[in-house]
Simulated assay, not measured.
Amino acid sequence: MIVTLTPNPSLDRTVEIDELRRGEVHRATGGRVDPGGKGVNVSRALASGDTATIAVLPSGGPEGAQLAALLAPFGVQTVQVPIAGTVRSNITVAEPDGTTTKLNEAGPELTPEEAAAVERTVVDLAARASWVVGAGSLPRGLGVDFYARLVAALRSSDTQVCIDASGPPLAAAVDAGPDLIKPNAEELAELVGRPLTRLADVVDAAAEIRKRGVGTVLVSLGGDGALLVSADEVLHGWAPPVRVRSTVGAGDSTLAGFLAGGGRGRSALVTAIAYGTAAVQLPGSVMPRPGDLNPGAVVVTDNPDLDRPLS
């Protein structure tokens, strides 16, 4: 069973239009409202593939009740930690060529007591889990070291810990030594403080992060696939180009596929890329189901083209 924590969950409204033109009135060609937040998306993708998961959510306000109601049909078991604030709402504007424009609210501010309750809930559930995933931005009140504290709190358990975040919270978590992180190329570049223009740069950056105590680095590279760097291997995988409908949640789906595929090695990377590739072909933040996956189209090599430029 996999426990996910989304410290700053959201309601994600996606509006599809022909072309975004600043300052003009647009007629939507489609739209939907989905439960959102990186950990929520991971749990949704896992549940769609019949992998047992529990999603931990700080939850408050009418939006919190709506979030729980939207998650119920997906088969995601939730543990809601009550907070006085209101769950945020995000808006994504999606264009036919795959371009997405996101408007994300900051979210509520948690009290010290609420922050402690969130951490305590995750630690208690970890005894039943093979993985704990801390994912997404942190609401005000948790502090940039929250994920680092969570990693430290779980260090003595048999549960493996994955952090999927960005900026200072990810940097702090890296130094705490999680078993897995899943940055994209931009987040990895920020971590090491330099641009990454070739696949070799990504490999070097991931190896550098591993030296700081991270067990495995899974880097999502968009159209360039994904890179896996562990103690045993360096693997690069990709799938043939597809028509991109929405990139929202694609990285979360990639992480879910990696964990559903066993959380290590070649087969997990194949599953990760199959999940991510399927996700970008679906509207909004819809997570793929087993019938959407095409793992046979994924290519993985342990001899990557290090001179390959990133697109």
Score class of each variant (00 low, 15 high):
276 G>F: 09
80 Q>V: 11
227 L>A: 12
19 E>R: 07
19 E>K: 06
296 G>W: 01
208 E>P: 02
136 G>F: 08
311 S>C: 13
123 V>L: 10
262 G>M: 09
9 P>I: 03
162 C>I: 10
249 G>P: 02
235 L>M: 12
13 R>H: 05
85 G>C: 10
175 D>W: 00
13 R>C: 01
162 C>Q: 13
141 G>L: 04
22 R>T: 10
151 V>E: 11
141 G>F: 06
98 G>N: 08
87 V>T: 15
110 L>H: 01
100 T>K: 01
41 N>P: 07
251 G>A: 11
227 L>N: 04
142 L>K: 12
68 A>G: 15
17 I>M: 06
230 S>M: 13
37 G>R: 07
178 P>F: 03
115 A>I: 02
108 P>S: 03
266 R>W: 08
55 A>S: 15
245 R>E: 05
303 N>H: 15
311 S>G: 15
233 E>Y: 01
72 A>Y: 00
57 L>V: 02
107 G>P: 02
178 P>E: 06
112 P>L: 08
273 I>Q: 06
176 A>F: 04
33 V>N: 03
283 P>V: 01
306 L>Q: 12
84 A>N: 06
144 V>Q: 13
215 G>W: 09
109 E>N: 02
97 D>Y: 04
153 A>L: 09
213 G>Q: 08
26 H>F: 03
18 D>K: 13
189 A>Y: 04
13 R>N: 01
221 L>D: 08
182 K>S: 14
74 F>K: 04
296 G>E: 07
175 D>N: 00
304 P>A: 09
59 S>P: 09
304 P>R: 05
287 M>K: 10
30 G>L: 05
300 V>G: 14
132 V>S: 01
249 G>T: 05
183 P>F: 15
8 N>T: 11
6 T>D: 12
224 D>L: 13
307 D>N: 12
54 I>V: 15
280 V>N: 03
302 D>L: 11
29 T>Q: 11
234 V>P: 07
2 I>T: 10
189 A>L: 04
301 T>R: 14
71 L>M: 09
270 V>E: 11
112 P>A: 13
168 P>Q: 14
146 F>G: 02
70 L>N: 08
185 A>W: 04
228 L>R: 02
88 R>T: 04
4 T>H: 05
77 Q>H: 11
207 A>M: 12
248 V>H: 02
119 E>Y: 04
269 L>H: 02
31 G>S: 12
190 E>Q: 14
191 L>I: 10
275 Y>T: 12
166 S>N: 00
297 A>G: 01
149 R>N: 05
148 A>P: 06
208 E>G: 09
185 A>F: 00
50 D>K: 15
50 D>M: 12
259 L>D: 01
67 L>I: 07
287 M>S: 15
2 I>L: 09
286 V>I: 09
203 V>L: 13
157 S>Y: 00
46 L>V: 03
144 V>W: 05
10 S>W: 02
177 G>A: 15
28 A>H: 09
133 V>G: 10
188 L>S: 07
140 R>Q: 13
142 L>A: 10
63 E>I: 03
127 A>H: 14
189 A>V: 03
294 N>Y: 08
237 G>P: 00
87 V>D: 00
158 D>V: 01
69 A>G: 12
107 G>V: 01
180 L>V: 13
